[in-house]
Design a protein around this nucleic acid. Structure first.
Lengths: 153, 153
DNA sequence: TATTGTTATACTCTATAACTATA
DNA sequence: TATAGTTATAGAGTATAACAATA
């Protein structure tokens, strides 16, 4: 485990990987029972869909993903009954993605799960350090100095 | 991009993903010219190999990966000339993995790359916040409250 | 029988390229 | 021609399961 009891060979890359792994595991504790087929990426996407529904292109932009990548998740969610979609009469190219009742439930559970995870992390760090962590992550992740921020690709 | 100019729908998962992406991109700036075939995960692994060499099982433990997963990286590194390996005469089950001269060079460049990335991140955050960030990430990532820390699986 | 490492396969997340249908 | 979305494919990181060779 990047070693706790051995030489602690850490590396930012390994560290971030561990965090991701932990996030998934911690969320699954709350989420898995009710929605074993939803992974963190799905939950995240479900949350991004407004009640009126959204277009694939818009969701992709908000999620920071390509339309294709996002489309894969939408397909999965539709196959599993969390969203439905239909072409618009006004513009048949557009597919409006809307959550089903089950999708709404998933969002609720997801919200709870995130709150629980954040709560736990907060307990471990103290509120101040937790907030600081999130703020720093945002600074680094959204920095212009990093990846060029190209919303729609 | 999880939106900077739109609604900033962030989520710890998305945030960590962005950070990973940025780390890779930032490191590649230094690394890509000399070693275009080495990705961050390879560099990280190369660094873990002591000069005397190491066994797959030991590397897997230190890296926090399964033997199989690690073996894949070792195979790649060997195919690309960064390590060599040989069975031990004393115990023919064991494969000792040793860096080649090229592997050593890669480690040097990698070290430089990490230093540059850390330096840049430090500049963006200030030393204090940067150190804090790393410390917090360690706390969270290595916490017993998170994933059970099972080195060898 | 236990351990080292391998082979084969799969999952998770996301991307690029080339395309179809519609506007 | 431009836009919305699709299909097909791949890459990056890592895992599980079943196995072979050696101890």
């Amino acid at each position: 485990m990047t070693s706790v009891n051995g030489v602690p060979v850490l590396h930012l890359a390994g560290l971030l990987g561990l965090l991701m792994k932990r996030l998934r595991a911690d969320m699954a504790e709350t989420t898995e029972a009710a929605f074993p087929d939803l992974r963190v990426s799905h939950l995240r996407l479900l949350e991004l869909i407004p009640v009126e529904g959204a277009r694939i292109t818009d969701l992709a932009e908000v999620a920071g993903m390509t339309k294709q990548g996002l489309g894969q998740h939408v397909d999965y969610l539709e196959r599993h009954g969390y969203v439905v979609s239909e072409r618009l009469a006004e513009d048949k190219r557009v597919r409006l993605v809307v959550r089903t009742a089950r999708g709404d439930e998933a969002v609720q559970v997801s919200t709870t799960a995130i709150a629980r995870v954040e709560g736990r992390w907060r307990d471990e760090l103290g509120t101040e350090r937790f907030e600081e962590f999130v703020a720093i992550a945002k600074t680094l992740g959204l920095s212009d100095a990093g990846l060029t921020d190209q919303p729609a690709r």
